[in-house]
Design a binder for these strands. Structure first.
Lengths: 339, 339
DNA sequence: CTGAAAGCGCTTACAG
DNA sequence: CTGAAAGCGCTTACAG
């Protein structure tokens, strides 16, 4: 049934079989093209018979457009990004696009991008990784829109979608102060990342408004091991914190495990723990983590919409979208009224 | 600097700028092609100047090969698949391949595959989803090797890589019987999936060897809510189980949360819980789950190697690789010696 | 080592 | 509505 020669049937083969021109075959598979119903039926029958599928590469070559979007990620261990990846992929697929996936290290992913850019991608979506502003400019010149999620390259011609990390951090500071905590600590993620910096900044400002300062600080680097080590450093002292804000949920789980399993502390009786992201596991019984929502769904659809709009307009947007999150109080923290 | 006309510089532009033929440009970017060192330098300089990158689509069209591999997944919520996705992608990238990602529903992903197959993929890797044996045959005829991870299509011309689920289930049955449990229950995943069926089968056989039968059974469908419901059904009775084997870790976490938070049972004092997969979270302090290793790394590298081999040979392999796992005893279960 | 030419599989003005 | 022809950006015999 299938073409013996090449292992791949092409439009010419179908045309011959259907007794029409190659143009007719092409028109059959181009929605809205002008073709007689009967011709179309003949082509479809022949195509089915031969197992023909239009070759997307050839089509993209001639139309100078592609329905392929590059997706760049650095970290899938963190369930926040796993959730985001799935949501982004499904939305893009629903919009008729196809996803090319790349994993890089954290930070600037220019090398990986050089590879992706060999393909005529219609757009680029990056999360947990960035690109240099030079490459951002190059993409803009080439007409390839770039959308960053959870990252931001100042002054670059890109769209960025971030959570309102400052406001989120402030909500946590406010909440812990109101609950009557006196020695409030912070465990940072990657000290370079704007997510961690902004959360910390908002947090400190809020504490200040209540006349408090950050009692202690350690860096967990957004890794589990880093978080455990930070917890040990912070709590193996004479006057340990009575509350700790951890820059994301993923680290907060490690902190809780360490506090309870290793240091024999009770949460929240001895210490309140607050995270950030509201990943699925935060609601699981074992953690019941008070945290700030990263509105993944909103962020994803904002990012995807922005990307699709830019692709449609052929204009690489340039805006900063900040999505508000909210504090979700669960049982890992003391409440103001329990004071 | 970049080409003003089209937004994309092509080999012809570079050739003109460097004062050489288009062939020379092509040879410069084809490793091993015969080209003088000096010519090559001129081309490279011109390419850099103009911001030229070879177009992978055009290249693939003419060579009739592509370095693109299709990856099909159904479920990323389960951390086992997230870990696998990242490992697979990174290995494939390291081998110079690029990954096209597709999400489908569980079961047969024929529709999604029809879309992928419009691209000239060099091979297909599927996990947590399968394809019909008809489509498997079609791929084989088209020379596209298919590798299934954690799934199997009997008699189809594909390579499948699965864990030895029977042996794993047997290890659990054996372990629980030796620990002196009398009323051992099972919570199934997707009753259709061979993973769940094989684990259950091995489990029951092992119990039988100890003169036990499976005391109760419920279906969790590999979802968290299903697992919670299954736990309620199984444990809200007069003589509840004293041990439960859950078909995967992901559900086992939900079961533990329900047992402890909702039913007031202690793990392992009142009931032993055993999972399957050994996902990262199984080792986290809050769960400390006894489970059976799915040797992700081995499975991934076996699958990737098989795929790359088939691509290289141009022959769609046909074998079943079964990877052994092992029981990891943690604190969610009573041990034989504590009897 | 090098270039001119053919061709991968498609779409799209153009003329009918 | 339809077909012949040109061309997307590349690689690869072929001849020199």
């Amino acid at each position: 049934m299938a073409n013996r020669r090449s292992g791949r049937v092409n439009a010419r083969d179908v045309a011959r079989a259907a007794g029409v021109s190659q143009s007719a075959v092409s028109r059959t598979f181009t929605p809205g093209a002008s073709i007689a119903a009967e011709t179309r039926q003949r082509v479809i029958a022949a195509a089915r018979e031969l197992g023909y599928r239009p070759n997307a590469f050839a089509r993209s070559l001639i139309t100078r457009r592609s329905r392929m979007v590059g997706l760049v990620l650095a970290d899938l261990d963190n369930p926040f990004y796993a959730r985001m990846l799935e949501a982004v992929s499904r939305e893009l697929q629903a919009a008729g696009h196809h996803v090319m996936l790349f994993f890089t290290d954290r930070g600037e992913a220019d090398d990986a991008l050089q590879e992706i850019l060999q393909y005529p991608v219609a757009g680029l979506l990056m999360a947990s990784a960035t690109l240099s502003s030079a490459l951002a400019r190059e993409c803009a010149e080439a007409g390839i829109p770039v959308v960053l999620v959870n990252r931001d390259v100042p002054d670059a011609p890109t769209v960025s979608v971030t959570a309102d990390n400052e406001a989120g951090g402030a909500a946590v500071g406010d909440f812990l102060a109101r609950a009557g905590h006196q020695r409030v600590a912070f465990i940072a993620g990657d000290p370079e990342a704007s997510t961690s910096r902004d959360r910390e900044h908002g947090f400190r400002e809020a504490l200040a408004r209540h006349g408090l300062t950050c009692h202690a600080r350690a860096v967990g680097n957004y890794t589990r091991e880093g978080a455990r080590e930070a917890a040990r450093t912070l709590f193996r002292v004479n006057a340990p914190p009575d509350a700790v804000f951890v820059a994301n949920d993923y680290m907060a789980f490690a902190v809780m495990d360490t506090l309870r399993g290793e240091l024999g502390l009770r949460v929240p009786e001895d210490v309140s723990v607050v995270g950030y992201d509201d990943v699925t596991q935060a609601a699981w019984g074992a953690y019941n983590l008070t945290t700030v929502t990263q509105p993944t769904d909103t962020m994803v659809s904002t990012a995807v919409t922005a990307l699709l709009d830019s692709i449609r307009d052929g204009a690489p947007g340039r805006e900063r979208r900040v999505i508000a999150g909210e504090l979700v109080v669960r049982r890992s923290s003391r409440c103001p009224q329990n004071r």
